[in-house]
Amino acid sequence: MSRRTLTFSIFRYNPYDPEFEPRMQEYVLEETPRMTLFTALTDIREKLDPSLQFDFVCRSAVCGSCALLVNGRPRLACRTRTDEIPRRITLHPLPFFRLIGDLSVDTGSWFAQMAGRVQSWVHTTRPFDPASEEGRMSNEQALAIYELDRCIECGCCLAACATAHMRDDFLGAAGLLRIARFLIDPRDQRTDGDFFEVVGTDEGVFGCVGLLACHDYCPKNLPLMTQLAYLRRKLALASLRPPLRWILRQIARRVA
């Protein structure tokens, strides 16, 4: 394998340093076999510039810390091998989220408020009985819930979504997927109406205009398009029920 020399152009800004203007800074690095952006950025920090801020935790694409714009596309940096991308690499922090410094953004706060807004927990009146065996569930159902539970909150869907950028209060694909996850969970006793209250609005599923960038850039390949469509259908149909019921009642009254 021929060794390449990689040129990184990285967005730099330290809001706590008055002498630090936002700028793009270049770093040159020798490529090594199977190098990822994790190895590359760590090398840059340890050998070239110890002040460079970026976030990695698991470096194996399960924690969602390291989403960046790599040449303009939202991606997980740890899972981007340098041999997949051109020699010149431009790195920007994820848009949409508050910038902490350089490539580091505050995804945690956004996702925490989202979880609060969608009341991201199982609502039930059934008490937990430590002495009895667990409630049963079919394996298919468990797998279906797990499938929707796989979101790692990396924020790529929001960074890619023009609607989220235009409307600050939009829940985004991540928030809507979270609702879908509880909607199909038989342990959650919330009714369609309860869910409707949370996401049947223009900040929720009806704020989505179907750009599908979330679907296309999700690093976990979550079925976002299918789930958003499912929520939209379900809630739109639910909205027809009360007026229809009202009309039927009026008719019944006339007839009677």
Binding site: F196, G200, S239
Partner: peptide, 16 residues
């Protein structure tokens, strides 16, 4: 109890 509030109902129907 009404299970659905009107503002969200309108959002849904306008979307439809």
């Amino acid at each position: 109890l009404p299970l659905v509030t009107w503002p969200s109902l309108t959002a849904a129907m306008l979307e439809l």
